[in-house]
Amino acid sequence: MTALHFTEEQRDCLQELVNVAMGQASDKLARYLATMVHLQVPAIKLVDTQQLPQHFAQRYQQQSVSLISMGFFGDQGLRGEAIMLYQLANVDVLARLLEYSDDDSSEAEMLTDISSVLTTTFLNGLAEQLDNSFSYAAPRILSSRDQHFADKLAATAQQWQLALQVDIRYQLTDYSFHCDMILLIPGEAVLRLRQMLDQILASF
């Protein structure tokens, strides 16, 4: 397990890349969603996937949470799964955000649509920073307004050794909207990511 850990330099480098990707994403999203998008600079953290379900179960105590998953694949063995967690009082927020007011989109469709937009916009920026590019699998709903979401997160997370936890708080003018994003990355991809970070560090 220790073999997968990042050095402080590697971690700082990744944090910087994530920050840049976030900045780009918030700019693009603000234009697309026609509202001010404030993305809090995320604290990234490498965590053991076994701890993740409990962490989020505590954060969303007794509340029902929707989980959306989106797989991503890059060159040089970089791959993983992005998980979005939403806790929504109502879907009207999403409908207004996506401007789907005149359409009969289901809650499930709106959730997958917004997840797709948020994750791919950020991940494309991150891939660019890593001189890579990602292709994506269609988003899937792992759990919909489910109080037992932690079990489902555990089932997904156990396939991955390490999780890159990126908590993003999206704040949008006129909307109260919040979600968490977690990137789950398998061990061998973490090794590749470390090599890429080392290359970037060496070039400075």
Partner: peptide, 9 residues
Amino acid sequence: ALQVPAFSS
């Protein structure tokens, strides 16, 4: 606008 893929299932 975002130059990202979109999906419909």
